[in-house]
Computed example of a mutant assay.
Amino acid sequence: MTDALWPLRTERLEIRPAAAADLGAIWEYRRLPEVNRWLGPAPATREAFDELYLDPERLATTLLITRQQDGAVIGDLMLRIGDAWAQREVIEQAKGTEAELGWTLAPEHTGQGYATEAVRGVIDLCFGALGLRRVLRRQRAVLAHDGTPRDAARGAQPQDGAASLRRVDGRHELRPARGGVAGLRLTP
């Protein structure tokens, strides 16, 4: 991803690649038990967190979500671009055409449409400027005010599995990719 794409601005948010200096703000919500219980790697100390997130590969896939009005860090996204599966004859055409997308919000910033807004902005970037053909969704901790996990794209309980997002008739369509994720249509 080139620097020319950033920051990505939506109606209320600014999204940009995370830097080492942002890790303190990210740690503040990722350390919370109600958040890190839904994450894969959930380091118990700030030192372990920094060691994990300072890895150049991980840092390069982490995007920071801030509110435009005050610059407050409200969450982060993971955008990992890679090669799609393809038959041997067309494998070169599949290189760099797929992305995996995940997100995490601080609990106090849920229930306000921020996750949906951020995800839609990044999806538009993927299918637009990045020219990708598929986006796979990985649900991260997005909590409702009552502490229950919510699917940012729909407001429903997240389910295990992944989903494949493709552009269909001018809309984004989310289809099950592996195991039990309900279908979903996002209209840009």
Rank of each mutant, 00 (worst) to 15 (best):
D3W: 00
D3S: 14
A4R: 12
L5K: 02
L5E: 08
W6S: 03
W6H: 05
P7S: 07
L8V: 10
R9Y: 09
T10P: 05
R12A: 08
R16Q: 11
R16V: 00
P17L: 12
P17A: 11
P17F: 05
A18R: 03
A18V: 06
A19V: 10
A19Q: 14
A20N: 10
A21V: 07
A21K: 11
A21Y: 00
D22N: 03
G24I: 00
W27T: 04
Y29L: 04
R30I: 00
L32M: 12
V35F: 07
V35I: 08
V35P: 05
N36S: 10
R37T: 03
R37Q: 13
W38H: 15
L39F: 09
L39V: 00
G40A: 14
P41T: 12
P41L: 12
P41R: 14
P41H: 10
P41Q: 11
A42E: 05
A42P: 04
A44W: 00
A44F: 00
A44S: 13
R46Q: 12
E47K: 08
A48E: 15
A48K: 10
F49A: 04
F49Q: 06
D50Y: 11
D50R: 10
E51L: 11
L52A: 13
L54K: 11
L54H: 12
D55K: 12
R58E: 15
R58S: 09
L59R: 14
A60G: 14
T61H: 13
T61V: 14
T61N: 13
T61R: 15
T62W: 06
T62N: 11
L63S: 08
L63P: 01
L63V: 02
L64H: 08
R67G: 02
Q69W: 02
D70M: 09
G71C: 05
V73E: 05
V73C: 14
I74E: 03
I74M: 10
G75S: 02
G75R: 03
M78S: 13
M78N: 13
M78R: 13
L79V: 01
R80I: 09
I81W: 07
I81E: 03
I81D: 07
G82S: 12
D83L: 02
A84Q: 10
A84F: 09
W85Q: 12
W85C: 01
Q87L: 13
R88E: 12
R88I: 02
E89A: 15
V90K: 03
V90N: 06
I91E: 15
E92F: 10
A94D: 06
A94Y: 06
K95T: 02
G96V: 00
G96L: 01
T97V: 10
E98F: 01
E98A: 11
E100F: 09
E100W: 13
E100T: 11
L101G: 02
L101P: 01
L101Y: 06
L101E: 04
G102A: 15
G102N: 08
T104L: 01
T104G: 05
A106G: 14
A106Y: 02
A106N: 02
P107D: 04
E108Q: 14
H109Y: 15
T110G: 15
G111K: 07
Q112W: 00
Q112S: 07
G113V: 07
G113F: 08
Y114A: 09
Y114G: 03
Y114F: 15
Y114N: 09
